[in-house]
Write a protein that binds this DNA or RNA. Structure first.
Lengths: 190, 190
DNA sequence: CACTACATGTAACTAGTTACATGATTCG
DNA sequence: CGAATCATGTAACTAGTTACATGTAGTG
């Protein structure tokens, strides 16, 4: 339900091909949304049919073309409308919490190890998010620069701070989870 | 992928019918996992075929029966094995963060309102999770009592604390999100 | 007798995953 | 010239959503 909005959000920075978008959403760079190219290409075609984006064919060689998609006015309006509307919280469905709920069934050391792995992953996530947050604050991100190029300089600092705040939140959540997991480890060994 | 494990986890406390499970997972009581009955009934039948659970028909009236499912040894082993194994983090796909990432596109007051709504929802979630955590700590939950009935009294306190820790984590995450959202509101109005 | 709760399903759909498939262009 | 990258797809599948469907049993 949100993949189209995720795509609109990236295309708002600059026009891109499905391939560019797929690299963006496939990689860890996707951050708040992930999607494989097998989902992206058909979605782009549907969005074009709905008039949210426009695809322009670009020649890349004698026999190779790519379709570069850009936002239409309708697409911009759709994105802004969606962002301005409060949506119901998605239902909780967290496999790790489900797992943790049953740590009492297994050996304390095994549960401890599972938490250690979790902590390592969250640590890495936190570091990546913090790095990205700082890049945004320093306007040191390609995509951000492209976004800012269509906005007045007076807004630049505010926009960068708002975007950075999202990644600060991701990092903060990961840090919180780490401290929670450490408490869990202490409980297990009591 | 985890619905079967969620079901195994509840059936570990006591045998239940699909209807009981559906009430559990449909309601806000589901907590860490949610699923509609249209997903639960077929899943139970598949799990029975795989030998993870056993269904026994119970007569509830002259013409009404229900099937009560209970864990088999294989089901118990599957659950314990899954809990003891570290699983890769699910990819991030958070519609609210996606929305927040584009607050710069809309009016600050509208974005502020969206955050206010978010804070209210997280506040409610935190309160519910805290209430549930305290119930578990006081062994004041039906399901927990039934779980404990098959475990030695010496373990009871430890089990209750481990379960409560999960809900403490849910509450803590909600509280963190609230403080993050308030920071966002401050940023918007700067 | 009406309403609520009990009990279990199917059907049609959207979203997302995993694997397979194909070919062009660039760079060392 | 071989490898990596560019570029775009399809097919088969699993998971989850929403709506429709049916009937029983208990309660006031």
């Amino acid at each position: 339900m949100s993949l189209p909005h995720a795509l609109l959000g990236v295309l708002d920075a600059r026009p891109m091909s499905g391939y560019d978008l797929a690299r963006f959403f496939d990689a860890a760079t996707g951050w708040v949304w992930a999607a494989p190219h097998s989902q992206i290409y058909p979605t782009l075609r549907k969005m074009e049919q709905r008039g949210l984006i426009r695809g322009d064919d670009e020649v890349r060689g004698p026999r190779l073309t790519r379709t570069v998609y850009s936002l239409t006015e309708e697409g911009k309006a759709e994105l802004a409308g969606w962002v301005a509307t409060a949506h119901p919280l998605p239902v909780i469905r967290d496999p790790f919490l489900l797992q943790a709920l049953h740590f009492d069934l297994i050996d304390a050391n095994q549960a401890h190890d599972v938490l250690t792995k979790f902590i390592e992953e969250q640590e890495q996530l936190a570091e990546e998010a913090e790095e990205h947050r700082d890049k945004l604050l320093n306007k040191d991100s390609e995509l951000l620069k492209e976004r800012l190029s269509s906005r007045g300089p007076a807004e630049h600092e505010r926009i960068a701070r708002l975007k950075a705040h999202v990644f600060d939140g991701i990092a903060g959540m990961a840090r919180y989870k780490i401290s929670w997991a450490r408490q869990g480890q202490a409980l297990l060994l009591e």
